[in-house]
Design a protein around this nucleic acid. Structure first.
Lengths: 349, 349
DNA sequence: CTGAAAGCGCTTACAG
DNA sequence: CTGAAAGCGCTTACAG
């Protein structure tokens, strides 16, 4: 059923011009007389001709495709990153070649595949990513930008939220509320963002004179957070944390539900919970989660202009960026003293 | 910084064989002696050679790329469809070229773009899609499958959930509970899925001897559902609905929150609410939404095998499929009589 | 402004 | 099994 493609030669013959003339007509800014252009356009319309982007890519050495690899599409945070990335790329006439890394695992063949398809650049937004992959990319000279992560030892351009300020703000909120026994629920421990949050949180706690926070792992998922919080909350009374900071909102949501509906305890009376991301669900009245707000769409926007900038200027380097975050105090944490401030305060970064 | 590409010719020279030999080594199932293969592989490794998929596509007339156009990535339902689609496609060595249609609008240039890139097939999962676009696709002979929608007058293969049974089940639940004044919140009225649900709901209501349901529109979004339900619930007492069926869960969630937290009313005591999709949030204890469960991943899986089947067999037609749905009774609807059945009942389809 | 021609990097009959 | 050669559909110097 696949019909033979109509090519520029077909159009040329019908229009009575050379094949070059057809090509020029479809190349913005090429020299063609109005008369020729008209002949070509009518013939093209009649035949239903559309230039073959693959053939063009081969000769121009540019595909206008950007590889986008993403880890966890189910997390609303990454859904927004993906949507914004794609729309921005489309707006500039680029195509996105999408790769989803199974369950936050190393994207494996994604990068090599993308490179075989000669993508002009790559945006990687996935917790797990082996340095080898990244190196391979660098070797081919394909621009790459990391979203919300870095790779130790490699100087790859990235856009990150300010993990440290966010984690410090979380520590401060809990310390201000007078808690002493805190806990931290890791996402994926090999993720650079997780590490940044964990370290900054522990350090700030120490600065505030509190004992180190207990740790557990929730693999960045709802169920993982649910289970981790159950484990923490069923410890003996002397160990049980008074407040829990989860490395992302999805886990915090799981934890919140575990506490309220599975353990039958109250938040924040029995335990405070704080998340990271401020996904839409966090502000639902029935949830009302204290969290650290980030701007996923801004993250995406920066990443897109970074890759495109590198593609245009034929570089593989550019300055990394760090975006500010904002503490959003809601009802899942106990306020400092008696005055409950439910307003969002800007975090100095 | 972009280095000159390593080509098969470079490898051939280093290995001391013809360029054809190199090509054969990288073509599964081609005839190459073990000796040649070894020479080629070592040279390739040394040079870091990877076949250029674009050049290959041009000559083989097959890109192994599938275009995927999606409407609303933020809706968890479509996130799952997208994730499953992509992973399945990747698993067969295909690439996905992603298009996201802004805010459920007509994808516009998405299809033409995809066609210029010579995608082998297209999976379209977006509420709005102009028939012209679809026709254009058909004219090029590119296989296309629609997910959860159809196009009136065109016989394009599709995978749909059983909108009708689902809507009937919703009508029955509400009629069984003894309600008389019902309402339906449309998603997007130009969406075929919305129409199917609306019509089946109204028809079933009539069959049960109830007056027609009031209607409003919520554009398939949380805020849209929130606003629509507020409008419905602030009507005069004699018009105000006793139960509301929303065309998807996202709107139902908005509606639920509007009722509980904005209007300060109780669900289901003051009004029953029922959704469609059974997204993860619907089963959160604090939500507990009665809904119609569908299987987004199964939808995606079918769509993928349909396109791939057509690609393999060089057809553009295949049988459409309809997947069953299941009523999930939770706490947002009043049970029939006094015996609350909180278990899921299979809907006959 | 226009056309003839080379060439992007590959696959695949074809002849050996 | 192997190599020389044609050709996929385009862009772009080059000469006119």
């Amino acid at each position: 059923m696949k019909k033979r493609q109509v090519t520029s030669l077909d159009v040329a013959r019908m229009a009575g011009v050379s094949q070059s003339a057809v090509s020029r007509t479809f190349t913005p800014g090429a020299c063609v007389s109005e008369k020729t252009r008209l002949k070509v356009m009518t013939a093209a319309r009649l035949l239903g001709y559309k230039p073959n982007a693959i053939a063009r890519s081969l000769i121009t050495q540019r595909t206008n495709m950007i590889g986008v690899v993403i880890g966890d599409t189910i997390n609303p945070f990454y859904s927004e990153v993906l949507e914004e990335t794609t729309q921005r790329l489309q707006a500039t006439g680029r195509q996105v070649m999408l790769f989803v890394a199974a369950a936050n695992l190393d994207p494996g063949e994604a990068l090599p595949q993308a490179l075989q398809y000669q993508v002009d650049g790559v945006i990687v937004s996935t917790a797990a990513l082996s340095p080898q992959m990244a190196l391979e990319c660098a070797n081919v000279g394909t621009p790459m930008v990391l979203v919300n992560r870095t790779i130790e030892g490699l100087d790859i351009p990235s856009v990150n939220v300010d993990h440290e300020s966010g984690a410090r703000a979380a520590a401060d909120v809990l310390a201000d509320a007078g808690y002493r026994r805190l806990a931290f629920v890791n996402g994926i421990q090999t993720s650079s963002g997780n590490e940044a949050r964990r370290r900054a949180f522990q350090r700030r706690i120490a600065e505030r004179g509190l004992p180190p926070a207990l740790e557990d792992v929730g693999s960045y998922t709802y169920n993982g957070g649910f289970a981790a919080v159950i484990r923490l909350m069923t410890m003996t009374r002397e160990h049980r944390p008074e407040a829990i900071f989860c490395a992302n909102d999805v886990m915090a949501l799981g934890g919140l539900h575990a506490v309220r509906h599975h353990l039958g305890l109250r938040v924040p009376e029995d335990v405070s919970i704080i998340g990271f991301d401020d996904i839409p669900e966090a502000s639902w009245p029935s949830v009302d989660l204290t969290t650290i707000r980030v701007w996923p769409r801004e993250l995406a926007a920066r990443a897109v202009s970074m890759v495109l900038g590198m593609v245009e200027s034929r570089t593989t380097t550019c300055d990394s960026q760090i975006l500010p975050v904002e503490l959003v105090v809601r009802a899942s944490t106990r306020p400092a003293g008696s005055k409950a401030s439910a307003t969002a305060e800007r975090v100095a970064t």
